[in-house]
């Protein structure tokens, strides 16, 4: 049996989790909500993250539009995703929720805007 100690990142409470792994059977203790158990299982089997960053805007009232991956992506893909985000440019206006990069770094996940940027 393998035991791993994790800190839940599901919310700012940061519960200390203990995960007991025995083959297919994963037992989580220390969580205060179901999200904690979900997080621990996922973190052990296939860790994922939401990536947030910003993309340069041409002709906008501010220089950058904040963005995020529409859903979480494999942790190992963070820097591949960042490479595409850093190379991207978009034209104003941009609307919150608008898809700015489709299928980023072949993850199947889109990059969407998280704020509105008006034309300058």
């Amino acid at each position: 049996m393998e035991t791993r100690n994790l800190i839940c990142i599901g919310c700012p409470l940061g519960c200390p989790l203990t995960v007991n792994i025995e083959g297919e059977d994963i037992k989580v203790t220390g969580n205060t909500c179901p999200r904690g158990a979900d997080y621990a299982k996922k973190e052990v089997l296939s860790p994922t993250r939401i990536v947030t960053s910003s993309i340069r805007v041409d002709g906008g009232d501010i220089a950058m539009v904040s963005v995020k991956t529409k859903s979480d992506i494999p942790k190992s893909k963070i820097f591949d995703i960042m490479k595409e985000i850093r190379a991207a440019r978009v034209d104003a206006p941009v609307a919150m929720g608008q898809v700015l990069i489709e299928n980023c770094a072949d993850t199947g996940v889109d990059i969407i805007a998280t704020k509105n940027v008006a034309r300058a």
């Binding site: 599901g10 700012p12 939401i50 947030t52 904040s66 963005v67 995020k68 998280t114 704020k115 509105n116």
Partner: peptide, 22 residues
């Protein structure tokens, strides 16, 4: 604050700062 993690208590979902303000 373009990172996520805002709004779990208020909206029961994880938002970025600009989205929460929005």
């Amino acid at each position: 604050c373009i990172h996520n993690g805002f709004g779990l208590h208020t909206f029961k979902e994880e938002l970025t700062g600009p989205e929460y303000a929005g």
